[in-house]
Design a protein around this nucleic acid. Structure first.
Length: 724
DNA sequence: GACCTGCTGCGGTGTG
């Protein structure tokens, strides 16, 4: 074996030999050398089951064994985004550590109190924890952080891409800074990831002050061959004898996926239930054993475990129809094919999903993309005519093949999470002056875009008598106010993300899953849920329970959701596809026919030469040719002038009212830099968990920073005016 | 026009 192997501690070498491994993988050898020969932070990027965990832990465990820390404290900290992932990884690490008396401590909400108490008394070895449980340690045991982590050599962050610029990612980066401040020295950071669109940005996220010293270790090549098909289907119209597009897609899935393990990404929980129901019926009709199961976050843990077990190690063929629940996380083994119904929202998700297939030597990765479009009639809208879903699928596959995916958005302020961290630091220290808070969170921590003036505004909002989250002593120390105490004391404080209220669905004492509270149901209604059909018997509003019993028919429930966000590059590529005349080889005849139709209509409506087209007296269509953030900004501006506006991928449909000025005149004014109020017709600004404690002014600033781009408004408007 | 993720400490009762 290699020289890297020789650097490892004896017990680790022994364990590797016992596995029958003839050599270390390239990323493992490189990670070992980097960790032994430098103090650098590092990012290890490789596909699922590519040996990333071992790449980080072989050398880390070896270093701990070769030079045990004096005194107590955890030697290595691992942070994982899922409880299931922590349980999985703890099992793997225990295998390596069992002969060396290095404790492996899983720590999350489902771990028993006794395990936690024991670990607190004698902190040692590897601690595997969620961001929320780490947050809880800071809030509840703020003074013990230095004792627990004083000896920690490294922090391993798993699935780094999931925490880059989410609220949760900002929370984690804030906690890492606070950890280093508490023990008064930096801790080596090691990020593990599969999908990273922009490596330089990822390095800057891992270590903002020293990104150039983040070593990047990427698995080279080795990507499986990709087999790809995009099939087109039409829904609506025609007579009753033609099968619906849903039936046709289900029939195709049934025929081609039966007999092996597969993942079908259906895009929404409601569609998961619809397709799982159809596929189940097809099995019953053919008198075949059931092998298609739904999987999404509203289904009970029991049911999800069952489906995951069947995928993982059961010999029975299993296809999960799922949402992004099966996109990352625990190892479910290799699947034969990944199907995607409708275009996804990001190329990153598509890439991550595809990574679930083609992992076995010599097996190709297979992607079956289904595009379902509306059958056209004489009064079809321009959106249907342009077949935007199909076009987006093509654009995304194009970008996927080029290796591009969405980078993080570094400009967002994350004021909701800032509120959370202010309260958390005050709780940790039992009080803090404003300048210390600013220094910890905004100078050292991740909130670097926040000026002292804005920080003061946030503190004022939190200290306002009606909010009552914080108060100030005569000496200038900030303490938790009455409402602040109440908020921080409750266990729901630790997570920074918002969760909707839900009803529990129960049949015969068994919990099937949950439904959002705004889903209006009444006794007697029939429901498809968890791949079966149910009759609603009773609804208990106070206990938030819905009692159901098996039934023969049903309709899928409505789950609701947030608007998606499509990147500029995806929209730009969609317009390239509409303008081009190439015919991708991976499309079937139906899909090619639909593409041809879309291109013809694109030219016919006049978008080849113009971006502003009038359809009748009141209706205009603007081809913005840019992504969701910029398109939404223009839509808000126009609504401010009284237009009613509908938004699509790269397009706006604008309706003039009785009082509205001419659209071209408004666009000219915007193009000349007239200041417009984007929030005049304001929608809901309370999108994050701690938003209710901020002023309207701060909420608008936060919305602009994360969801809008007012700076490009004038340029955008000028582009349309110049064409007139 | 969508999806996903997480949670402490205490007091009560029961068991060996």
């Amino acid at each position: 074996m290699s020289s890297a192997f020789d650097q490892l501690a004896r017990p680790v070498q022994k364990w590797i030999r016992q596995q029958g491994w003839r050599e270390l993988r390239d990323i493992q050898a490189r990670a070992i050398r980097t960790i032994y020969e430098s103090e650098n932070d590092l990012i290890v990027a490789a596909s699922t089951a590519g040996g990333k965990t071992e790449a980080a832990f072989f050398p880390l465990i070896s270093q701990v064994l070769d030079a045990p820390a004096e005194g107590g404290g955890f030697d290595v900290l691992y942070i994982g985004p899922l409880k299931a992932l922590i349980t999985d990884q703890a099992g793997r690490l225990e295998g390596i550590c069992q002969e060396v008396e290095l404790p492996v401590v899983p720590w999350h909400g489902d771990v028993s109190q006794s395990v936690k108490t024991r670990a607190m008394k004698n902190p040692k070895g590897i601690l595997l924890i969620t961001p929320e449980s780490l947050e809880a340690l800071f809030v509840r045991r703020g003074l013990e952080i230095a004792r627990l982590f004083g000896a920690t050599r490294a922090v391993v962050i798993d699935e780094l891409h999931t925490v880059l610029d989410s609220e949760r990612g900002v929370q984690l980066r804030s906690l890492l800074t606070r950890l280093e401040l508490a023990i008064k020295r930096p801790i080596r950071r090691i990020g593990l990831s599969a999908t990273l669109g922009d490596m330089d940005l990822a390095r800057a996220y891992l270590r903002p002050d020293n990104a150039e010293h983040v070593t990047l270790i990427e698995a080279d090549g080795g990507e499986a061959e990709l087999k790809l098909q995009l099939r087109g289907y039409l829904s609506g119209g025609e007579d009753d004898n033609t099968p619906s597009a849903t039936d046709a897609v289900a029939a195709h899935l049934f025929e081609h996926l039966r007999g092996s393990d597969n993942l079908v990404f259906a895009g929404a929980r409601q569609r998961v239930e619809i397709y799982a129901d159809r596929l189940r019926n097809l099995c019953e009709q053919e008198h075949l054993p059931q092998e298609f199961y739904p999987h999404h976050a509203s289904l009970s843990r029991d049911h999800r475990d069952f489906v995951e077990r069947r995928l993982k190690d059961n010999g029975k063929p299993t296809t999960a129809v799922c949402t992004s629940t099966l996109e990352l996380g625990i190892d479910i083994g290799d699947v034969t094919c990944v199907a995607q119904i409708g275009a996804p929202f990001t190329v990153a998700a598509l890439r991550q999903r595809l990574g679930r297939s083609g992992r076995r030597e010599g097996q190709p990765a297979i992607l079956r993309q289904y595009a379902v479009e509306t059958r056209l009639s004489s009064d079809s809208s321009f959106v249907d005519r342009l077949r935007l879903g199909l076009i987006r699928s093509i654009a995304m596959i194009d970008l996927l093949l080029e290796g591009w995916c969405e980078p993080p958005k570094p400009q967002a302020l994350h004021l909701s999470t800032l509120v959370h961290q202010i309260l958390s630091v005050i709780a940790q220290r039992g009080g803090a002056p404003a300048n210390v808070l600013y220094s910890v969170l905004c100078r050292e921590g991740p909130f670097r875009q926040i000026s002292t003036a804005m920080f003061t505004d946030v503190l004022r909002a939190l200290g306002h008598p009606e909010t009552g989250l914080i108060e100030q002593t005569d000496g200038g120390l900030l303490l938790l106010g009455q409402n602040g105490e109440r908020l921080v004391e409750h266990y729901s404080f630790y997570a920074v993300f918002k969760t909707p209220e839900e009803y529990r669905l129960v049949s015969n004492g068994r919990e099937l899953g949950t439904l959002p509270i705004d889903n209006i149901l009444s006794p007697g209604m029939m429901l498809i849920f968890s791949g079966r059909r149910w009759l609603v018997q009773e609804i208990h509003d106070r206990e938030k329970v819905i009692m159901v019993k098996p039934a023969k028919a049903g309709v899928p429930p409505v789950f609701g959701g947030d608007p998606g966000e499509i990147h500029d590059n995806v929209i730009a590529r969609m317009f390239d596809v509409l303008k081009a005349d190439t015919k991708p080889l991976y499309m079937d005849a139906n899909a090619l026919g639909m593409l041809e139709e879309a291109r013809l209509n694109y030219a016919q409506i006049g978008f080849t030469d113009a971006s502003l087209v009038n359809l009748g007296e009141e209706t205009s269509i603007i081809a913005t040719r840019v992504g969701t953030m910029k398109t939404t900004t223009l839509a808000l501006a126009l609504r401010g002038f009284g237009f009613s506006v509908e938004q699509y991928d790269g397009f706006l449909q604008v309706e003039a009212g009785d009082e509205t000025p001419l659209l071209t005149e408004v666009l000219t004014r915007i193009g000349e830099g007239e200041v417009v109020d984007l929030f005049a017709g304001a929608g809901n600004l309370l999108t994050e968990k701690f938003h209710p404690y901020l002023t309207r002014e701060l909420l608008e600033i936060d919305a602009v920073s994360s969801r809008l781009e007012p700076r490009v408004l004038a340029t955008l408007a000028r582009a349309f005016v110049s064409q007139l």
